[in-house]
Design a protein around this nucleic acid. Structure first.
Length: 281
DNA sequence: CAATCGTCCTGCGGGC
DNA sequence: TGCCCGCAGGACGATT
């Protein structure tokens, strides 16, 4: 569910907690813990540690606890809540952190579909973690340059939209923003990456930053609004409004906002893909 | 190496 | 009304 913008919003909302000590931790559901983590030992590793920072790479949220890093990937349905009571069912708490300070609020990590993963990086910096090391540049970091982008593009032959979803190409884009980026770039999502012109590549490169930043400014994309338990929410339960600005995602059969065409929905690489066949070339 | 496909899991909404 | 099926914002591993 959360893509780069949603994880970035969560990170910014959590930043005021930097400096807090983890007084008590509890964890459940061993399937979600990787790198030798278990619900038992993660508690031992976290308790008594100070939260020194929250960072983000792609869709990974990075929590610096003492000298080490707890790395959380929300995948489809992961959420982080900052509140006094456990979040409402059917969400179930996988990790709870009680922090020092006056506040009664605690951090709750949930994962309705249980796809989320907790990873661990001992000392050093989280970029050394193998999952992060093999990722492409993060569009909001300085290593995201057009030269780099164009180099990574060469030799790729698959559909451009699938390439945008490939985390080793660019980090942080998911299905919603891949559709929106193709639309805003005027590029047919089915176009093979190897016949994207330099001008078009430049357009896509710029649009990636533009769309992601706009989404952050709008509080992220929350599909289905209040109705679904899987909807994206900020740490205080806030719903994002960027879905109101989606040009094509979730808008099958609606009028194209740019031409006389109609938004279509197809499958591409097994994923729902929304686009306007009339003005995306 | 790069691309495709099935799979993991739970809850919801549509159709019959 | 109730049940069954398909679908969902992600990524991994096996296979071609």
């Amino acid at each position: 569910m959360p893509e780069l913008p949603e994880v970035e919003i969560i990170r910014r909302q959590l930043l005021p907690l930097v400096g807090s000590e983890i007084i008590r931790a509890s964890a459940d559901d061993e399937d979600l813990f990787a790198d030798g983590l278990t619900p038992e030992n993660v508690v031992v590793r976290l308790q008594g540690k100070t939260i020194n920072n929250f960072e983000r790479y792609g869709k990974f949220l990075l929590l610096e606890a003492g000298e080490n890093w707890l790395i959380f990937h929300p995948r489809m349905s992961g959420k982080i809540w900052y509140r006094t009571d456990p979040p409402p069912l059917p969400d179930r708490v996988k990790l709870e952190l009680d922090l020092s300070g006056e506040s009664e609020e605690k951090l709750f990590f949930t994962s309705l579909r249980r796809f989320s993963r907790f990873y661990w990086q001992e000392r050093g910096n989280p970029g050394q973690h193998p999952k992060i090391a093999k990722m492409g540049p993060d569009p909001l970091h300085s290593e995201y340059t057009f030269d780099n982008f164009k180099n990574n593009l060469s030799g790729r032959r698959g559909a451009i939209k699938n390439l945008l979803l490939d985390q080793s190409f660019v980090a942080g884009i998911g299905n919603i923003y891949a559709c929106e980026i193709c639309f805003r770039s005027g590029i047919d999502p089915r176009r093979s990456a190897d016949n994207i012109s330099s001008t078009e590549a430049r357009k896509i490169f710029d649009t990636i930053i533009e769309v992601l930043k706009e989404a952050i400014a709008a509080g992220g994309s929350s599909l289905n609004q209040e109705s679904s338990a899987t909807v994206y929410r900020g740490v205080g339960g806030e719903v994002g409004s960027y879905s109101d600005q989606h040009r094509v995602y979730g808008r099958e059969n609606e009028n194209c906002p740019r031409c006389d065409g109609e938004v279509k929905k197809i499958k591409l690489g097994g994923r729902s893909t929304f686009f306007c066949p009339d003005c995306q070339k």
